[in-house]
Structures are given as C-alpha cells and as structure tokens.
Write a protein that binds this DNA or RNA. Structure first.
Lengths: 195, 195
DNA sequence: TCGGCGGTAGACAGGTCTGTCTACATCTCT
DNA sequence: AGAGATGTAGACAGACCTGTCTACCGCCGA
C-alpha cells in the first residue's frame, strides 16, 4: 500500500470521486489527502500543483468514457444502429443516481478561461466526441453529417445537464427517442440505400 | 445616487456580470465591492450573506429570461410557431459571444447539494422552463407533449452548454433545425423539412 | 445650528486554501 | 551494507475569503 503506483492510483481515485461529486474548487487538497490516506508530500510529488491533478483526472475520465463508448458499439457493424445503441446507453446512464452530469462540462464551467489547462482538456474532449458522432452520422448515411452530429451532441449534453440538475428520474430518459427521431429524419429523407 | 435603491441595483448589476462570467465561488465579495463602488457594509446591509446575493441574482436572471421568452412569442398565436420562434432565438443567442451558457446550470454545478438555496432556485427555474415547453407542446398538438417538451429541453440545455464550452461559433447553431425536426415528428407524420 | 441617518473607508478576526519544509521510516537495487 | 527513491506526519507561510466592527463624512430637516 505504500508503493508508488498504488499511491498515485489511490490519489486519482479519491480525487475522481470528490471532484465529480463536489466540484473542483470545492474540494481542497487537504480533503483528498485525508480521504486517500496518503501524505501531502506524496500527492505533491506526483502532481506538482492541484491543476496537474485535475488535468490527470480529466484525462483519466476521458479514457474511461472512450472505453465505455467504443465497447458499447464494437460488436455492431451498422453505424446507424451504433448511434442508436449509444443513445440508449446514454439514457440509461443519465437517469441513474450515480450519474452526476458531465465532469468536463463542470470543468469548463468552473474554469471559464479558454487558456486554462482544465478548460482546454475538456474542450478537446468535447470536440472529439462531436467529431466521433459526426463520423458515425456520415457512416450512417446522413445527408448532412455535421448537422446530425451537432444535434446529437446537443442532446447528449442536455442529458448530462439534466442528470446533474434534476437528479435521477429526470427528462434525460427522453434522449434516446429524441436521438432516434433526429437520426431517422436525417437519414430517411431519401429511401434507405445500401452504401 | 447614494440612495438605497440605486446602491442595491449597482451591486446586483455588478454581481450579475461577475458571477455569470467567472462563476460564483471564483468571485469574492471584495471584488464585487470594488467593481460596484459601494462600501462593504452597504452590500451586507442589503444582502446579509453572499448566498443571499447569489439567490437575488438568480431570481433577477430568471425574471429576465421569462421576459425575453414571453416577449418573443407574444405576437404569435400558433403554438407550434411559438416553439419554432423560441428555438430560432435560442440558436441566435447561443452562438453570440455574449452568451456564456446558462447561469442556472452553473449554479447547480457549483452548488451540487439539492438543499442549497442556489441549487433549489436553479432547479425551480429549470422545472418551470420544462413545464412551459411541455405546455406549448401540448398546445401545438403533440401526441406526447411530455416527450416533446423533454426532448426540446435537452436541446436547449445542450445549446447553452455548447456556448459555454466552445464559445461563439459552436454547434449550438444546430439547435433550431433539430428542434424543428423533433416538433415535426411529434406533431405530424410528414415533417416540414428543416432547411 | 445641530442631531440623526445613510453611506464610505478600511482595519480586523477567524477560517480555509495551496504549496513548502523538516524529520524520519521503509523499500529496492547494487 | 549502503544509496537513493519513495513513503508518512505534520508544522508552517502566505494568500485569500467571508463577515463584523469602528470611525468618519455629508446631507437634510427641525
């Protein structure tokens, strides 16, 4: 328990839980120290400043999200069905009590300056999600993939917002049907054509 | 100019600008004092604690939002067109550089506890927006007004999120077409094609 | 003329936060 | 065995934050 790797992991796991639940500014280094059971110097050796810890946490969260999403769709060859799968999963996730919204959105809100590292990492992540949705929209045969990808992105972020604001049982459960409507309207205008 | 009412107004206006731009925790009472040009005791006479100022600011913002929205649609008798008007206006607003997202969402994020007054006020506001959208959906003849209202709400919050995260020129401009697609699909079988 | 009142200016107390520093323990590799 | 990296415990500095308090100032009405 005193070895390097597990100390770092312990810090990151504790920070993840606290940052996600209470926010970045609200959680002090001392709290992370106390709850993770490591010494202050150990934390500051691994993460020279609190911002470094925040950035490391965000990158870790991003990796976890991508793993979640790509695992979801890896056995489904059809792009349209991949999109629908994603939004069913988003709906399920967003109405769960464990979902407290999107931690990247929280980072962008708490650190509004675009040149702040946390904002920059969050923005990069959101851009990549938008790009992936747009790519899937293109593969699914949308006439205007940017329009569909953008609309789907709005729905997803709306769902995370609803989860944070309303808690479980919010209108975030509507995200799957709404996404299917957007997808259908973007693709089905012309008869389904094998690509 | 040193009378009570204008001092209070001056404080609220300054607080609005600073809270909206930098966040609630990031802006200290001392900064509001300095920028509004009033004395500390004057602020604390009008608002016994910082939380009281935050709540007063949120209520003021809510009133401004409702004034904006109801003015938008007051000359349009048709509920469906009212919804479309709203989402055109949301799209315009969200891509403007002055739009820094939704201040109520920021409040809910910075004060995650549901019993915190700021979170409670923000939640009440969001509930009333959802109710209004659902009511308009019903008046517009949606088969499932809760579903359409919920979907539209997701889009709107997605647009505010995009504005904060990406800045002007985000995919928030897609919110109008996406809303029209949802509306059309919820009301009739043959949607009017979004442009 | 003078007392009271709304406001100003700013010192101050007490708390919290980030980040540093000292002193010491333990583990690994050579 | 010994060096160096890694860990713990906790005091400490310095900044900042909220909220209180005192001293003062200028205006207006009696």
């Amino acid at each position: 328990m005193t070895e390097t790797r597990s100390a770092r992991e312990q810090i990151l796991e504790t920070a993840a839980r606290l940052f996600y639940q209470y926010g970045y500014r609200a959680v002090g280094v001392d709290t992370i120290i106390a709850e993770s059971g490591v010494a202050k110097m150990t934390l500051y050796r691994h993460f020279p400043a609190k911002d470094d810890l925040i950035v490391a946490y965000l990158e870790r969260s991003g990796a976890a999200f991508w793993n979640w999403l790509e695992t979801l769709i890896k056995d489904e060859p059809d792009a349209r069905k991949q999109l629908e799968l994603i939004y069913e999963a988003v709906a399920n996730r967003a109405v769960n009590a464990a979902c407290l919204g999107c931690t990247f959105m929280a980072a962008a809100l708490e650190f509004p300056e675009f040149d702040h590292r946390a904002h920059a990492v969050a923005l990069e992540y959101k851009k990549s999600v938008l790009a992936r949705l747009t790519e899937l929209s293109r593969q699914a045969g949308a006439k205007n993939p940017e329009a569909l990808g953008g609309g789907l992105m709005l729905l997803m972020d709306g769902a995370w917002s609803a989860a944070r604001m309303f808690g479980p049982g919010s209108h975030a459960d509507k995200v799957s049907d709404a996404a299917k409507t957007l997808i259908a309207a973007a693709i089905d205008q012309t008869p389904t054509r094998p690509r």
